[in-house]
């Protein structure tokens, strides 16, 4: 009975949203209340420091960094053997990420790789989650003569291709540096295989695939974050109330999943880079036989 009392107003609100939105406007023949959202890929300029332009996505990234640093700084300020709530939350997060990394990379690399990989996860996830706050789509500046916000103060950094590209470059350098560090010049034999045309071709493909990762890393995160943003805008535009909440829930999940995927793929590629590759495997096998 009590749940019905809550459900009925919620359904009524959802229906009202549909009626007042563009669908209702089209069906009932009145002028729609809001303009259709426009998709624009590039971030918007907020201010400039000298010749350097600060965009709303970069500002958002800095804000996210501050929040992350405050959260982690406060949570780990006084570490106790019996943790409080915030310390407990951070410990659970760190333990889960560390366990994930250790499970794939082993104890040998987990401790060294953890800071970068965990930060990738935290940075991507918090950027995505913070963009769900209502201040992101509402606070901004109006252009002259405009009746709505034309430049948003904050926008999810994941929707700016520069951020995923920067993370992809970091991941690429991280993977290749570790591959080179472990195998030294033997790592290059993975790409430059001479003597057999088929092997040479495979090596070339391998080399290209490593560089392709930068693009795949970048566009996977960029596409997902941007698509999520667009879906939220469109659902809010179409239905006004209630229904967008479902998509907000979905976006919380997508943010976490994308962060995990980015971190996980970096980890997997790093593990593959440090694992003994074909030439080394043969050497290991020969050494094993002797």
């Amino acid at each position: 009975m009590k749940s019905r009392l809550i459900l009925l107003p919620v359904l009524a609100l959802a229906l009202l949203g549909v009626v007042l939105g563009p669908i209702g406007a089209k069906l009932l023949g009145f002028e729609r209340l809001i303009d259709a959202p426009a998709v624009h890929l590039a971030p918007q300029k907020i201010f400039a420091i000298g010749g350097f332009t600060v965009t709303n996505t970069l500002l958002s990234a800095w804000l996210t960094c501050i929040v992350i640093l405050l959260l982690f700084g406060l949570g780990s300020r006084r570490m106790a053997m019996v943790p409080g709530r915030l310390q407990g939350f951070l410990e659970v997060l760190v333990e889960a990420l560390y366990g994930f990394i250790r499970g794939m990379a082993g104890e040998r690399y987990a401790r060294r790789w953890f800071p970068l990989l965990a930060t990738i996860f935290v940075f991507v996830a918090f950027n995505a989650w913070m963009a769900l706050l209502p201040i992101y789509p509402t606070v901004g500046f109006k252009a002259e003569g405009a009746d709505h916000v034309t430049t948003h103060l904050l926008r999810s950094a994941g929707t700016d291709i520069n951020m995923p590209l920067a993370l992809a470059l970091i991941a690429f350098v991280f993977i290749e540096v570790w591959g080179f560090r472990v195998h030294r010049f033997g790592y290059l034999r993975e790409f430059f295989r001479f003597g057999n045309p088929v092997q040479t071709f495979i090596g070339l493909l391998e080399l290209i695939s490593h560089f392709i990762r930068i693009i795949s890393f970048t566009f996977r995160l960029f596409g997902n974050m941007l698509a999520g943003e667009i879906v939220l805008f469109m659902m809010t535009f179409l239905t006004f109330f209630v229904t967008p909440i479902i998509f907000y829930g979905l976006e919380i999940l997508v943010g976490g999943v994308q962060a995990l995927v980015f971190m996980g793929l970096t980890l997997v590629f790093a593990v593959l880079a440090v694992a003994p590759h074909e030439g080394h495997r043969e050497e290991h096998a020969e050494a094993g036989q002797h």
């Binding site: 890929l41 590039a42 971030p43 350097f52 332009t53 965009t55 996505t57 970069l58 990234a61 800095w62 960094c65 992350i68 640093l69 800071p115 970068l116 930060t119 940075f123 950094a157 700016d160 291709i161 520069n162 951020m163 590209l165 920067a166 993370l167 470059l169 970091i170």
Partner: peptide, 20 residues
């Protein structure tokens, strides 16, 4: 149209590096 900007890219790299 994607808005790839070397300075923004550098800013993200530095920001992320500092965060780490």
């Amino acid at each position: 149209a994607l808005g790839i900007d070397p300075w923004s890219l550098l800013a993200y790299l530095v920001t992320f590096g500092l965060l780490v």
